[in-house]
């Protein structure tokens, strides 16, 4: 056998063993990741399982599989309080916040990225510095502001505060970062084609920013959906509650949680969030990359 044939034979021999090593590596990695995933997945499984158990069984039986599947918990959730109304409130508030944030953040982000005006840098610095202030610090001044505006026990502050508050700034910052990275020549081509500044934003910059818009939409929806402190401070009428408040409201006469109902309601509450997450995982990850060094 000449040296070339020997090398070829070695390569043929090497093929399957190389494949086996890759397979073993893959199995090891997957197993390790499954172990790491347990602390994240277990609470979710526990929640779903508990939502189908009786109140006594939740802490009584350690098994994840209920003795009897109590689907009636899900019916009870709607009978106990106006849960459907709360669900609707959360949906329409989250969609309103998302829609408004997309419009304002993309307009403001575009202006900050592209328009030359006095103090643009200062405005950006001022806005971003606002992100450093924790929500707990601003809640009291916001409370006085909302009361002064006569908006207590309405949904308006739940829409206005996230839109114009720190979350809106974050969204504006994300959009600005994306717009800065768009090629200027495309917008100039739009100007040559007869578009106004607003036309360039609408017909060129926005369609090209779909990934950023998607990311901002997802983050904003989740933010608004999970908002707890603001509804707690500003809402008092039961029928105006949003889901996070509603979940905290599944209690007995002594204020103790009704676990089976609370967990059934929580399971229902995470459905939209999970759906969005599964449909747009890539964009959520991109959204974190967007706020990085790009631009």
């Amino acid at each position: 056998m000449n040296p070339t044939e020997t090398a070829a034979a070695q390569m043929v021999h090497k093929g399957p063993s190389h494949k086996r090593i890759r397979l073993i590596t893959r199995v090891c990695w997957t197993s390790a990741l499954l172990v790491v995933a347990v602390p994240f997945v277990f609470p979710f499984l526990w929640m779903v399982s508990s939502s189908l158990k009786s109140a006594a069984e939740i802490f009584g039986a350690p098994s994840l599989i209920p003795d009897r599947f109590l689907w009636s918990n899900f019916v009870e959730v709607f009978n106990y309080q106006p849960f459907a109304r709360h669900y609707f409130n959360s949906i329409y508030i989250s969609l309103s916040v998302t829609g408004l944030t997309l419009i304002i953040a993309s307009l403001a982000g575009y202006a900050l990225a592209r328009m030359r005006f006095a103090g643009a840098g200062l405005i950006m610095l001022f806005l971003v510095s606002g992100l450093m202030v924790p929500e707990e610090v601003t809640i009291i001044p916001n409370f006085f502001l909302v009361r002064w505006l006569g908006l207590m026990d309405t949904h308006a502050p739940l829409i206005l505060l996230p839109t114009f508050g720190s979350h809106g700034v974050m969204a504006t910052f994300l959009m600005r970062q994306y717009f800065v990275a768009l090629p200027k020549e495309l917008e100039e081509a739009g100007t040559m084609d007869g578009l106004s500044r607003l036309g360039v934003w609408w017909k060129i910059a926005l369609p090209m920013s779909r990934p950023a818009l998607g990311a901002v939409a997802i983050i904003t929806f989740l933010f608004s959906w999970n908002l707890f402190l603001e509804p707690l401070v500003f809402l008092s009428s039961l029928e105006k509650f949003t889901l996070p408040l509603s979940l905290a409201n599944f209690t007995d006469a002594y204020g103790m949680p009704l676990w089976h109902l609370q967990l059934a309601a929580t399971t229902l509450a995470v459905v939209p969030v999970l759906t969005i997450y599964v449909l747009a995982q890539r964009q959520i990850i991109e959204s974190f990359a967007l706020s990085g060094v790009k631009g």
């Binding site: 495309l186 100039e188 040559m192 084609d193 007869g194």
Partner: peptide, 20 residues
């Protein structure tokens, strides 16, 4: 006079074609 009303058309270095 705004660019679109000058009766000129421009071919850019990067082509500047709208990707969408």
């Amino acid at each position: 006079v705004p660019p679109a009303r000058r009766g000129v058309a421009m071919v850019f270095q990067s082509y500047a074609l709208y990707p969408h």
